[in-house]
């Protein structure tokens, strides 16, 4: 706009900047500041330098929490990507009807509150819940267990919930990407006698690199941020077997009076998410050049 007064853009920015700055940027900086202190939330605080960060590597509960987050990435991200690639590639090859309805259905888990999802899966995993009942019905009684009370199986059980939530998102994303690949590319490959598998690796996979990058970012970040799911299904238990970084932030800041430690975990988590985003964006950009 030509006759624009100089202060005008800033005027339009003011409400957003004020709210965003006060309630997001400023608390983020405060978190970084908190992380350098030892504070129980009530009394005096003591400057401890980077001790809270050193604790990320020395505290066994925290090491376990980050380890669990890695396991969750497997279930939230790697597994859905594998499943999504196969499903989307197959659906993209053939003309199937009802894809619209399919999209609506598989995307649905994304819009449900995590608490609702957790309640649903608690009923599936209950001692007399859907899963054990189904196992008994087909005679696999020895496989039944208390899915959410078992040191070995609870973390994978929680992870499966993530797989359920994320697979639809990944599939819909990949379907959209594959739909943009020119049809004649596939035709040409078939004329050359390429089978379904070669076609997948030669054409489909390279053409959705950008979508894969986006899918990985979204799902890895979701895995790292997991809080409600653990809070409602297991409370980090049994023992500490399903605790995750975000859950430790909450516990330490509001239950155990270790506010500095909580802030350090939160900042570390944020840093990891930033780095991941940068890496994935680099990869996605590399494709376009």
């Amino acid at each position: 706009m030509r006759h624009q007064r100089r202060y005008l853009p800033y005027l339009y920015l003011t409400p957003a900047l004020l709210l965003f700055g006060t309630f997001l940027l400023y608390p983020l900086v405060r978190s970084a500041q908190f992380s350098l202190f030892s504070w129980d939330g009530l009394g005096a605080s003591e400057f401890v330098g980077f001790d809270n960060y050193v604790e990320l590597f020395t505290d066994e509960v925290l090491r376990a929490a980050f380890g669990h987050a890695l396991v969750l990435i497997l279930f939230f991200s790697v597994l859905p990507l594998g499943l999504g690639l196969v499903i989307a590639a197959i659906l993209n090859r053939g003309q199937v009807r009802g894809l619209g309805l399919f999209r609506t259905v598989v995307f649905l888990p994304q819009v449900l509150a995590m608490v609702v999802v957790a309640v649903a899966w608690r009923q599936i995993y209950a001692p007399n819940g859907t899963l054990n009942t189904a196992l008994r019905a087909v005679g696999l009684d020895e496989l039944t267990r208390t899915w959410l009370g078992d040191y070995t199986w609870t973390l994978p059980a929680v992870g499966m919930v993530g797989t359920w939530v994320q697979t639809g998102l990944v599939t819909v994303l990949l379907l959209a990407g594959m739909g943009r690949v020119p049809r004649d590319l596939f035709e040409a490959a078939r004329l050359d006698g390429a089978g379904a598998v070669r076609e997948f690796f030669a054409i489909t996979l390279p053409s959705v690199r950008g979508e894969i990058a986006v899918a990985l970012t979204l799902t890895i970040v979701a895995a790292l941020k997991t809080f409600d799911l653990v809070y409602v299904t297991t409370g980090g238990g049994p023992g500490n077997s399903t605790t995750v970084p975000a859950y430790e932030v909450f516990q330490r800041a509001f239950r155990e009076g270790a506010v500095g430690s909580a802030a350090a975990i939160a900042i570390a988590l944020t840093a990891i998410i930033f780095v991941l985003n940068v890496i994935v964006n680099r990869i996605a950009e590399g494709r376009e050049e």
């Binding site: 608390p27 970040v221 941020k225 809080f227 932030v249 506010v259 939160a266």
Partner: peptide, 18 residues
């Protein structure tokens, strides 16, 4: 700054906010 804000998880701000 706004782009950066999209990536900040609630966990990172909720402690000092409270």
């Amino acid at each position: 700054l706004f782009l950066l804000g999209i990536m900040v998880p609630a966990e990172a701000i909720v402690v000092p906010l409270f």
